[in-house]
């Protein structure tokens, strides 16, 4: 780590290695190797990545107010699910990531998954959802500059991440069904989930279109007013 001069790059790598490189390597490896028990291996990796993140969060000093704001955003994204047409988890995670940083974004996504599953049922899929939503927030934090600058960028990011989220969760569906991974089955899963994914993308689009700016301003106001 000492060799890399840019602090920014260092942070990027610190996130990238555990969250992206390891899981990708493992998944690709598993696909190529055609071994069995992909599901459990993936689950273990997902759990480990989450653990790694949570432990590093535990060690860092985070202000009381920031912690409360994270809790508020988590609760809002869950409470918002009860409003018809609104599935604000992805959108709020993106907004939090962009305006409060990747770590907060990750936490909002991951914790929203845990809490909404209190209402929709916990299961082995919980860690997958945590990681998927967490990563959406994390990357939003890494891309915070462009996302904050233009509304189009944040909408595009939100819609794409919604689609990617569905795609990732379908990997879980396929993995859990068949110990192996078959592309045809994955394709079928994607296809059956298509109406749902499309609805989700539209909802994300509308939500971000209407709310990205005003919510960002609100977060900025609180940041300034209370020195978060």
């Amino acid at each position: 780590m000492m060799v890399i001069k840019s602090a920014r790059l260092r942070t990027v790598l610190r996130w990238l290695i555990p969250f992206v490189l390891i899981p990708t390597a493992v998944i690709v490896g598993l696909l190529v190797l055609e071994q069995r028990q992909h599901l459990l291996v993936t689950l273990a990796v997902v759990l480990l990545s989450l653990l790694l993140f949570l432990c590093s969060f535990e060690k860092r000093a985070v202000g009381v107010r920031r912690q409360v704001i994270i809790a508020v955003m988590v609760a809002l994204s869950v409470a918002g699910r009860f409003i018809p047409f609104f599935k604000p988890v992805t959108a709020l995670t993106v907004i939090t990531g962009a305006y409060l940083g990747g770590e907060s974004g990750f936490l909002v996504g991951a914790l929203a998954a845990v809490i909404s599953n209190f209402y929709f049922g916990q299961g082995p899929w919980t860690p997958f959802q945590m990681l998927a939503w967490g990563l959406i927030g994390l990357f939003a934090g890494l891309l915070s500059q462009p996302l904050r600058r233009s509304r189009a960028a944040i909408i595009v990011y939100g819609v794409i991440s919604g689609i990617v989220y569905s795609a990732v969760m379908d990997v879980w569906t396929v993995l859990s069904y068949d110990s192996g991974f078959t592309w045809s089955l994955y394709g079928a899963a994607l296809l059956t989930a298509l109406p749902h994914t499309a609805l989700y993308a539209v909802s994300n689009f509308i939500f971000l279109w209407l709310c990205a700016r005003p919510f960002g301003e609100k977060l900025e106001r609180v940041k300034k007013k209370y020195g978060v």
Binding site: L54, C55, E58, V68, A71, V74, L76, A79
Partner: peptide, 15 residues
């Protein structure tokens, strides 16, 4: 695992 996170979760659950 993480007392800090547990507290954030508890707050969110209350909210």
């Amino acid at each position: 695992v993480s007392p800090k996170l547990a507290l954030i979760l508890s707050m969110a659950l209350r909210y």
